[in-house]
Every structure is written in structure tokens, then in C-alpha cells.
């Protein structure tokens, strides 16, 4: 269907954007529109005002801050995917971006839009969660930072308040001897995954794992960090042993695409493969 009727503004500053959001209780932020416009077309959302952030100054940047990489919310996914700084500082993000829809979606979709949308099967929220990143938000009562573990609250739901804007996403930069992997099971390439595992491991000079990050997608109402698996890997467990812990604490729903049991099975399979590949690429 066609989107319903609504009003539209394209402010050029963050302040004006926040004012516009505050002016209408039914206002919504528009970033790349690659999730929001389909929701409008399905009539699952009916905002009276869209506040387009595309012309706001200062939201489109990739900034190397040494131990951290900061990416402006309106940075397009395709730009980040091709950026040499992102490739060097956060290769897991580049690998993850390649799994986000198709090039035609990534040309418009933004980094901030994907994280704010918080789809439980989306890659970018899981990257931020896996790496222990955070987001910067701003609203009428000022700026704040939300740690990834506090950000995702449930299905398409975050702790970003109405009237607040996500301005930047921050992830720790990867160190030496780091390996990474994204493994997904999807019905077709480019589809949201039925289940996926995103992994980053770091080795010391002796080849022992000293840092382990693993997040799972498609197995709950939000991206899930696999703490038990991470702890096992840090304790010296092999990928095969550690991955058996992946279903711990998960209770995915069943739907037309996959049963709960099948998703739990895939959690083990994708974790095992992702851990194995990440170890190989770190070595």
C-alpha cells in the first residue's frame, strides 16, 4: 500500500530536530526510511509528522578516536561498509554490514537507524551489543550515553525516549591478533536471518583467547549476548564445547519460518561456526 498522510520537516540542526519532535506527540524520526517506510506502507505506523534527519549537520561522520570508533547516526550503511577506517578499526562491523539486506537498501539505510530500530534479527544492534559499545543520544533535557546492554529493551524497543535522537554509535576499536566472523542461516541471502552469530576474538602472543565477544540474532525479542559461551572460550574450551552453551537462557518463539527448537539448534551451529572462523582468522 501507499504510506498514509503525514506532515514532514527536514531541519538542519539537532536543536531544531528536537524542537520539531517535541512539537507533536505523534512525531517520528525519519533516517534512511528502509524500515520506517515499509511500516508506513503496511499501516503499522501512523505518525502525524516525520522529522527527517538527513539534512541535520554533524550526524554523518566516521571518527577514529584511538581506542574507540564513533560513527554518526546518519552515516549511510554503504558508506561505512566501504570506509577504510571502519575496515581497520572494526572489521566485524564491515562483515556485518555485508549481511544487511542488499546494496540497494544499504545505500539509503543508516547506522543509527538500524540500531534505533532494534530488530531482534538485525546485525548492527548485535555488533554494538557484542562489542560492549554504546550510543549517544540527545533530547530537550540534554545529552546522555546509553551502554549497549541497557539499550535493547524488547521487540523493536530501546531505552531511547520519545523526543530523543540517537546522534552517534560508538564501539571499541579492535586490537592486534583479532579475528571475527558473522555466520547466518537465512532463507535467502539478504533476508533477515532465522538465526545468526556475530563473533570477535582476540589472542595473546601464545595464541590463547584473551577477549571474547559473541552475540546471537533471531533467537529472542532482542539481540542476545552469549555470556556463557564467551566465558567458556576464555576458559580454554574449544568452539565445539563452548557452542553447546549457546542455547543457555534463550527461549525463542516459533513462527512460520522456524520452530523454537530449530532456532535453538541453529544457535549452537552458528556459534560453533562463528567461533571456529574467528579463531582461524585471528591466528
Amino acid at each position: 500500500m501507499k504510506p498514509p498522510d503525514f506532515d514532514y520537516v527536514a531541519p538542519t540542526s539537532v536543536d531544531d530536530a528536537i524542537k520539531a519532535l517535541g512539537s507533536d506527540a505523534e512525531a517520528k524520526v525519519l533516517a534512511g526510511g528502509q524500515s520506517l517506510i515499509p511500516l508506513l506502507a503496511f499501516r503499522l505506523a501512523g505518525p502525524s509528522l516525520l522529522v527527517d534527519l538527513a539534512r541535520v549537520d554533524g550526524l554523518d561522520h566516521i571518527t577514529d578516536e584511538g581506542d574507540r570508533l564513533v560513527i554518526g547516526a546518519m552515516t549511510r550503511q554503504r558508506r561505512a561498509e566501504r570506509d577504510p577506517v571502519v575496515a581497520e578499526r572494526c572489521p566485524l562491523l564491515v562483515e556485518s554490514l555485508r549481511h544487511v539486506g542488499h546494496p540497494q537498501i544499504r545505500s539509503r539505510g543508516t547506522i543509527g537507524g538500524s540500531v534505533a530500530h532494534a530488530d531482534p534479527a538485525a546485525e548492527l544492534p548485535a555488533v554494538v551489543l557484542a562489542l560492549g559499545g554504546r550510543v549517544h543520544v540527545t533530547g530537550h533535557s540534554g545529552d546522555r550515553t546509553i551502554e549497549a546492554e541497557d539499550l535493547f529493551q524488547g521487540f523493536l524497543s530501546t531505552s531511547i525516549e520519545d523526543g530523543e535522537i540517537l546522534t552517534a554509535v560508538e564501539v571499541p576499536a579492535s586490537g592486534p591478533r583479532t579475528g571475527w566472523s558473522v555466520v547466518e542461516i537465512a532463507r535467502r541471502p539478504g533476508d533477515y536471518a532465522l538465526c545468526g552469530a556475530l563473533c570477535q576474538l582476540q589472542l595473546d602472543d601464545a595464541g590463547a583467547v584473551v577477549d571474547a565477544h559473541l552475540a546471537l540474532i533471531g533467537v529472542g525479542d532482542r539481540p542476545m549476548r552469549a555470556h556463557a559461551v564467551e566465558a567458556a572460550v576464555l576458559g580454554g574450551a574449544s568452539p565445539v564445547e563452548a557452542a553447546t552453551l549457546a542455547p543457555d537462557g534463550l527461549s525463542p518463539g516459533s513462527d512460520v519460518h522456524a520452530s523454537s527448537d530449530y532456532r535453538l539448534h541453529l544457535a549452537t551451529v552458528t556459534s560453533r561456526r562463528a567461533l571456529t572462523q574467528a579463531l582461524e582468522s585471528a591466528a
Binding site: 504510506p3 514532514y8 527536514a10 525519519l30 526510511g33 528502509q34 517506510i37 515499509p38 506502507a41 516525520l50 527527517d52 538527513a54 554503504r78 546494496p103 540497494q104 537498501i105 545505500s107 539509503r108
Partner: peptide, 17 residues
């Protein structure tokens, strides 16, 4: 759009100004 493929059904005309 500006040399890159995009879905014309997922872009509002006002966004393409």
C-alpha cells in the same frame, strides 16, 4: 539516486529533493 541504486518505493519524493 545520486549514482547509487535505491528502492524508489522506499524513498519519499521530499527526501530526494
Amino acid at each position: 539516486v545520486d549514482g547509487e541504486t535505491a528502492r524508489a518505493c522506499l524513498l519519499l519524493t521530499v527526501q530526494a529533493d
